[in-house]
Design a protein around this nucleic acid. Structure first.
Lengths: 253, 253
DNA sequence: CGTCACCTTGATCTGCCTCAAAAACCGTGG
DNA sequence: CCACGGTTTTTGAGGCAGATCAAGGTGACG
């Protein structure tokens, strides 16, 4: 089942868990999920889709575009994670009731809206799908953890390399990558926000990466010649993304 | 319902969600949860309770002690979060199947073990309790996000202050804090691992905090005179901990 | 009372920040 | 097609937080 054929049949949710546990979803579950989306909404670049403290009675799945999960403190914005199409960006909100962070669009982004009572119905009537929903939110936590380690460990050029490696893999899983890189609406200032660096230093770090032929970022496009070299440089091990086949089992406890 | 009376009646799980949504749990749910724990296990200081890549068919709730959630890379260990009694430390494992990180004991720690088929039963028969389980794992994600922001934003002394502020609050929620601070088995080297700093620099930063009368850490004990000052210095806003009453609603979307 | 683990101190070096400015790019309207 | 203003990227110089290397202390415990 390719990503694109799934997307033809389920235009709003066909990328959900693509490359991960989507293979575990029955057609009935896929249909159910597609039916949960009551409407779609498209927001422009820079728009704040959801703000910290909002109480929502619906959750949003990202259908198209790129968003940042951000926190603000002392007047500055910090990106704590990002999302690609197929990600159920604030499924959290169902269990948390109110969000602790913002969802900001980078470039134009289209969301599908799912009312919370529909999710509650899934919890009651479809435990397997509920478990997949849970899984999807835990994926975010796993990515957060990797990011914490990355921030604790590496210099800015390596952090950027790691971001690039992760974006590339995740876009690939949902069928939106090129063989030699990917497109992205991110600006340097936003990469800086993701890496805990200033835009100026990020610019110099990007120049380093270019000079060392690790990654070539320029306005909206990232080109990478040698994936293994980039991932090695970044200390990127994709298993935390829980792609199919990764993080191989070691033993049953 | 005080933490201690709950703990008398539910000696293994009485601190679960204490200070958060425990008030939402019915007695039947509390009893059900207590019954999920089939046995307990006590590990010594430094023991690795769960290792990355392990496939588990059970999850662990921390009954007593302090643990770190860690990742390793390039031979070094990085702490990405910590847990206090009452935390269902690897509930994740139920939905993720295999863990992306380690759980390491700091000091002696006692866990209750819950088989996954028991959790599956909860998913099917007790949607409300299942939702609380989900909530508990999302709490971890919210704390991760705050940590990412902290790492992106602050200097080491502020990070340490933030760790102290968070530990204190969380211990308080489960009834294990003092009015003027808390006890902790953490060593300076472990605080360093939590803050993405070297032990040496952490030592100097701790000296700073002491000199400025913000926090006095010494072997196993942290004393804080002026909580507001510490929290203010750290930029600590406790709402992300989702304690009762915090992160007030702004509007219904 | 010696050993081991942990904490403390000193000196040097580097990654990244800040302030300041210029150059390239992009959409718009004439 | 070019002139224009705003946004994004690039470059330069100086300073500080934190890393690294290298020793000393200090306390707990056999």
């Amino acid at each position: 089942m390719t990503v694109s054929s799934e997307f033809d049949r389920y235009p709003k949710t066909g990328r959900f868990l693509a490359g991960r546990l989507r293979s575990e979803m029955s057609e009935a579950e896929k249909t159910e999920l597609e039916g949960l989306v009551v409407d779609t909404i498209t927001l422009r670049d820079g728009a704040r889709a959801i703000a910290r403290g909002d109480a929502c009675n619906w959750s949003a799945i990202l259908i198209d575009g790129f968003v940042l999960r951000t926190l603000e403190n002392g007047g500055r914005r910090y990106a704590v994670s990002f999302h690609v199409p197929g990600d159920f960006v604030d499924l959290h909100c169902f269990a948390l009731r109110r969000l602790d962070h913002n969802i900001d669009c980078v470039g134009e982004a289209t969301f599908g809206r799912v009312p919370h009572d529909a999710i509650a119905r899934v919890m009651e009537q479809r435990p397997h799908l509920a478990r997949l929903f849970w899984f999807a939110t835990l994926l975010d936590a796993a990515m957060h953890r990797e990011w914490i380690m990355k921030l604790e460990q590496s210099t800015v050029p390596k952090r950027i390399a790691h971001v690039f490696a992760e974006i590339w893999r995740r876009l690939e899983m949902v069928g939106q990558a090129f063989p030699d890189g990917f497109q992205t609406p991110l600006r340097q200032s936003e990469i800086a926000e993701m890496c805990g660096a200033t835009a100026i230093h990020t610019n110099r770090a990007l120049a380093d990466l270019r000079r060392n032929d690790l990654a070539d970022f320029r306005r909206g496009e990232v080109r990478i010649r040698d994936r293994a070299r980039l991932e090695d440089y970044a200390g990127f091990r994709p298993d935390y993304l829980y792609g199919e086949g990764s993080l191989a089992l070691r033993r049953a406890g």
